[in-house]
């Protein structure tokens, strides 16, 4: 009697799954309980590279990238269920009756992240218009730390960051990008908790659009701040951190408003003017 696909041993079965895209694995998973159990157990690795999650007014937007392929999904709340839309795709809308759009989206996110165990997720972006415990569970309740290389998040409170950052593999995280909404512009963050994390200490690049206590910046190699307004005081603090940090190679502030030009001349002395650049050079003292 000839053998069937279900008779194949675990090693080749796993190899086959690894050569398939996530959608094909999910189709296989739907064929029978045998394959469903195998896939749930083995969790075949996918080439998922980027995942962007955003929630705006109860609608969940997912942007999912597999290498060069990108899918945009929108989970809308509908009278009696969830309306799933494939944006920029010719696929028809799917209506899932008696379901909650957030639950469906979270289940899909978990399914996507289940396919990232040994491999690294290059980018994870999260933007929520309000705190959402369902989404925060995606990293928190995993068996193993999610390997994320570049994490970006828009946040309001430090606690929101603590729902994700501590649950990433500390050796995989290279870049952290943090953004605050316009309503929090000018608010100073201390990041007293997150700066104690290994994930924070091991990351190399930090980008933010807010100002926060400089003491927690020394471990980064590159820091970029996008600020609405800056003051001489901020520049002096930033300069001090840069000159004393052993690891920092680049520190940049982009700003809209600054009216202390003359003050800088007074403090730093006459700059070197190469229009449009104005430069001051400082000596980094050894040790």
């Amino acid at each position: 009697m000839s053998i069937s696909f279900l008779d194949l041993p675990g090693v080749p079965m796993k190899l086959i799954m690894e050569k398939l895209d996530l959608q094909s694995v999910q189709c296989l998973r739907k064929t029978c309980w045998n394959l469903r159990n195998f896939i749930d157990d083995v969790k075949p690795e996918s080439n998922l590279s980027d995942l962007k999650i955003s929630i705006i007014e109860d609608t969940v937007f997912l942007s999912v990238e597999f290498g060069e392929k990108c899918r945009n999904l929108v989970y809308k709340n509908h009278e009696n269920g969830c309306l799933l839309e494939f944006r920029y795709d010719s696929k028809p809308l799917i209506f899932l009756e008696n379901t909650n759009n957030l639950e469906i989206a979270v289940r899909d996110i978990q399914l996507l992240l289940d396919s990232k165990n040994s491999g690294i997720l290059q980018k994870l972006s999260i933007s929520l218009d309000k705190k959402c415990s369902e989404i925060s569970g995606i990293a928190k309740f995993r068996k193993n730390f999610l390997k994320v290389q570049n994490f970006s998040m828009s946040f309001r409170e430090e606690t929101e960051l603590l729902d994700f950052l501590p649950f990433f593999n500390p050796s995989s995280l290279k870049e952290i990008r943090l953004y605050i909404g316009r309503e929090n512009v000018g608010k100073v963050f201390e990041f007293s908790e997150i700066s104690k994390l290994d994930q924070w200490k091991n990351a190399k690049i930090l980008t933010l659009n807010t100002f926060f206590m400089m003491e927690n910046l020394e471990t980064f190699k590159e820091v970029t701040m996008y600020l609405e307004n800056i003051s001489v005081d901020i520049i002096l603090k930033f300069k001090k951190v840069f000159l004393t940090s052993a690891s920092m190679e680049k520190a940049e502030i982009s700003f809209y408003n600054f009216d202390g030009d003359e003050q800088l001349d007074e403090i730093f002395g006459e700059p070197v003017r190469h229009v449009p650049k104005i430069q001051w050079f400082f000596e980094i003292l050894e040790g």
Partner: peptide, 21 residues
């Protein structure tokens, strides 16, 4: 084997490989 599965629906896979529901 993977190439045989790619792009197929669960029903088609069942049919090709005689997988019972």
């Amino acid at each position: 084997v993977a190439m045989m599965v790619k792009g197929k629906s669960p029903e088609e896979i069942r049919e090709i490989w005689m997988i019972p529901t």
